[in-house]
Design a protein around this nucleic acid. Structure first.
Length: 375
DNA sequence: CTCGTGACGGTTGAA
DNA sequence: TGTTCAACCGTCACG
């Protein structure tokens, strides 16, 4: 179940077992690595296990994405998009066809072999759930011509493919297959798979959130969301303005922060640079502290540090951020449709958002952004 | 000391 | 509706 509090690792960092680190932390890891800081130092500074640092960096190097993979769900084993397509075709050609006939045809046509051919019941379910009553659907579709039928047409494979076309473009500042970025506005709202959705949404949220932060929030992209929303320190309400459900995950971390000794020590420790650090890093120490506090101390609803996360956003190299975003692949996408239902998870709703962000070592720049001194 | 790796206990969500 | 199960997570310990 949902831990009321996170756990503390050997380094004093807070984490939620089974859940990904916040993107802010993931991003910090990558940024620090790109500055030439050794993984072991990153691990200590951010208080993330070196195994995790290693994993995140490895993934980043491989895919260009800092984002965690898609958690949960299940890959269709037999009812692949191709199979569904064929089933639909068979059904369209012969509306009266029986499931067992479809099964036979799938075998006969070589769409499936005996090992992966769907069971009759599976086919029936596909007909019922994915294809539906074709005869009815025909007029139904007449009404919503431009709205593709939910799942079926959608390539699960595409969704699950790892690395995705996008990710495959590793480390490209302008990843191929990224029309999604400029085109996000036009993104079909009914994107079939939640797995894919967040991606897009995530991208969108970053790009567009400044203008409209209220849409398309996925719990799994909260960090980006938050980052964005926290740009304005004094506008902590933005967080509330955002789909609060999208903060769920962060909320966990936030909760962790509350009254958890490890938290304060974590924050302070970060800012005191427990380890000798290269001069270039020192700014990041503070920065890390802030970012980390954000990670730990959270946002939005949490009583004390209002906008801890913000700092890093100002400093995220656009290319890097984009890189991470763009290569988001399918991961984390599935949560989108949870926005409405995420309320099922009880998090403190009381959000006395004190405007005392400074508690968390956030440096307020004249510009108004609170970025940490990075230069 | 650093870092890659696998076991582990955990969460998630489509089927 | 509830369960199953395979995906992912980060930590930890080992080498």
């Amino acid at each position: 179940m949902e831990p009321a509090f996170g756990e503390v690792n050997q380094l004093g960092g807070v984490f939620v077992n089974g859940r990904p680190l916040p993107n802010a932390i993931r991003l910090r890891i990558v940024e620090l690595a790109q500055l030439g800081i050794r993984p072991c130092d990153i691990s200590r500074q951010l208080r993330v296990s070196h195994g995790c640092v290693s994993k995140i960096l490895a993934r980043y190097n491989e895919t260009g994405s800092i984002l965690p993979g898609a958690i949960g769900g299940s890959k269709p084993r037999v009812t692949t998009p191709t199979v569904v397509k064929h089933i639909r075709t068979y059904k369209q050609r012969d509306p009266g066809i029986f499931a067992w006939e479809i099964r036979d045809r799938l075998l006969a046509d070589g769409v499936c072999d005996k090992y992966n051919v769907p069971s009759v019941s599976s086919i029936s379910r596909i007909l019922r759930n994915k294809i539906g009553n074709l005869s009815q659907q025909s007029h139904y579709e007449a009404h919503k011509q431009h709205h593709p039928p939910p799942q079926p047409a959608l390539p699960y494979n595409h969704i699950y493919s790892y690395p995705s076309p996008i990710a495959a473009g590793t480390k490209m500042s302008a990843p191929p297959g990224m029309p999604a970025i400029p085109g996000t506005m036009a993104m079909p709202r009914t994107w079939p798979s939640s797995h894919s959705v967040t991606d897009i949404l995530g991208i969108r949220s970053i790009i567009e959130q400044a203008n409209d932060g209220s849409l398309y929030h996925s719990p799994k992209i909260e960090e980006w969301t938050l980052s964005r929303s926290n740009f304005q320190p004094s506008a902590q309400h933005i967080v509330n303005g955002l789909d609060k459900s999208s903060l769920d995950q962060e909320a966990k971390y936030s909760q962790t922060a509350n009254g958890l000794p490890a938290v304060s020590s974590f924050v302070s420790a970060s800012s005191m640079a427990p380890y000798p650090t290269p001069a270039q890093v020192s700014p990041y120490m503070t920065y890390s502290a802030a970012a980390s506090s954000g990670y730990v101390a959270g946002h939005g609803w949490q009583p004390a540090g209002a906008n801890p996360l913000s700092p890093h956003n100002c400093d995220i190299p656009a290319a890097l951020a984009f890189k991470g975003m763009s290569s988001a692949r399918e991961e984390g996408s599935k949560t989108n449709n949870q926005n409405a239902s995420s309320s099922s998870r009880p998090y403190p709703s009381s959000q006395t958002q004190a405007t005392t962000a400074h508690m968390l070592n956030i440096v307020h720049r004249p510009s108004g952004k609170h970025c940490l001194n990075k230069t």
